[in-house]
Amino acid sequence: MKVSLTVNGRAEEVDVPTNTLLVDILRTNLGLTGTHVGCDTSQCGACTVHVNGGAVKSCTILAPQAEGLEVTTIEGIGTMDQLHPMQEAFRECHALQCGFCTPGMIMQAIDLVENHKDLDNCGIREGLEGNICRCTGYHNIVRAIQSVVDQG
């Protein structure tokens, strides 16, 4: 089936079987491999992207459900010359170890900061409950997000 959607501001049309997942459209059809597949069971959050402005797990959206959606992936939030402030904070705080969970962490962190005022350490940790870092490198991830919150 044909699916039309907007990804990082660009109109795209793909032709895929109905049982394709949004994450596979992004990675395979559109070559946007920054979005990762970790668990493929909707638990780890490595595949987190923004749909119509909110963080969602792209491994749990079917291709036909993606019709007409506005999707933003990790590739769409900054450039190599000008990183998104959240990317810059992750770099500054060394908020990664192996880096596999990082794109999903950053996409969820942006949603978190946009939707919550006065986030503290506890609020940030609770806000990351849908994202798993198997290196267990949470401490610097929380520091990075806190630094963005503190910058206002």
Binding site: V51, A55, V56, Q108, D111, E129, G130
Partner: peptide
């Protein structure tokens, strides 16, 4: 659940 689940 978590935030991503609550959005869908």
């Amino acid at each position: 659940g978590d935030n991503q689940v609550r959005n869908r």
